[in-house]
Simulated scan of single mutants.
Amino acid sequence: MLAAAGVDSPRADAELLAAHVLGVERSRLPFVPLVDIPVIAELRKLVERRAKREPLQYLLGTAVMGGVTVAVGPGVFVPRPETELLLAWGLSTLERTAKPVVVDLCTGSAALALAVADARPDAVVHAVERDRGALVWARRNANARADAGDTPIRLHAGDVADRTLLDDLDGTVDLVLSNPPYVPEGSPVSPEVADYDPYHAVFAPGDGLEVIRKVVDCAARLLRPGGAVAIEHDDTQGESAPALLSTRRVLTDVQDHRDLAGRPRFVTALRARS
């Protein structure tokens, strides 16, 4: 059913849904000898919903980023596996930095911010989001981390276009990460994105770089000398996004990075030391 519906990874999705219904890890599925009829009926319902291209993460109620699992659902952008590469790059820049200060702009569900906090418990992590609907999910995920006794993140309601945003951190931040809206309006996207992800969390006006421009301005102001920034972008922006960062004299070592499929995926830069 999933293959016929055009789902990209039908076998993996089917196994994850079955594991979800059975309450076991996916790797444990071969060790489940028998299932009851109600279990089969529940699985069929979920498969039918997935065949209508409802996001797998909505059906599971969660998405994974790095070492954390966050709650997601209607009203918030679903984190994608491609962003793991941006996260890994960002963490690599902090390897020699004790107690780093990190800012996640356009945080959505707060998945990136929480993944950084999980990997670096000594970090002070700030997460910024302007959309009220997304903030509900971000706050839920942030509170769950705090309730578990882990180092909390600092969640802020704010807009990257605000030149006073986090101005008390100007020149002190070690790493800025962002997965902002970047798909040019009118671009074709999968049904999972078109029908379920919030429009304003996916699309940006014109060439799709409007929000990225604001993120670059904010990052250039926040970063300390030697600090790093990583911004995810559309696969059509492999030249335009790096060119945008290269226009800022305070940013150096601008590089674009490809995802596992070989497509341009995110751009990075360092704050000049002098």
Rank of each mutant, 00 (worst) to 15 (best):
M1S: 15
A3Y: 02
A3C: 00
G6R: 09
G6T: 04
V7Y: 13
S9K: 13
D13I: 04
L16V: 03
V21E: 07
L22Q: 08
L22E: 06
L22K: 07
V24Q: 08
E25F: 00
R26A: 11
L29E: 02
V32G: 03
P33G: 12
P33F: 10
V35D: 06
A41C: 12
E42G: 01
L43I: 10
K45G: 09
R50W: 10
E54S: 01
Q57V: 00
Q57H: 11
L59G: 09
G67A: 10
V68R: 11
V70I: 11
V70M: 12
G73Q: 07
P74I: 00
G75N: 06
P81N: 09
E82C: 12
G90V: 07
V101L: 15
V101E: 11
V102N: 02
D104G: 06
C106Q: 03
T107L: 02
A110F: 02
A115L: 09
V116K: 04
A117R: 05
A119H: 07
R120L: 14
D122M: 03
V125H: 01
V125P: 00
A127F: 01
E129P: 09
R130C: 03
D131W: 01
R132I: 07
A134H: 08
W137E: 10
R139K: 15
N141H: 06
R145A: 13
A146G: 05
A146R: 15
A148Q: 14
G149V: 04
G149D: 05
H156C: 11
D159H: 06
D159Y: 02
V160Q: 06
D162P: 13
R163Q: 12
R163Y: 02
G171W: 04
V173D: 03
D174V: 05
N179K: 03
P181N: 06
P181M: 02
Y182L: 07
V183A: 00
V183W: 00
G186E: 12
S190C: 04
S190P: 00
P191C: 10
V193N: 11
D197Y: 01
Y199P: 05
V202M: 08
F203I: 08
P205K: 13
D207T: 04
L209C: 13
V216S: 10
D217N: 13
D217R: 15
A220R: 12
R224V: 12
R224H: 02
P225M: 12
A230V: 11
I231K: 11
D235Q: 14
Q237G: 08
E239L: 13
S240P: 09
A241V: 07
A241L: 06
P242Y: 04
L251E: 13
T252R: 15
Q255A: 14
D256Y: 01
R258L: 15
D259E: 07
L260G: 10
P264D: 02
P264Q: 02
R271Q: 14
R271Y: 01
R273T: 15
S274P: 04
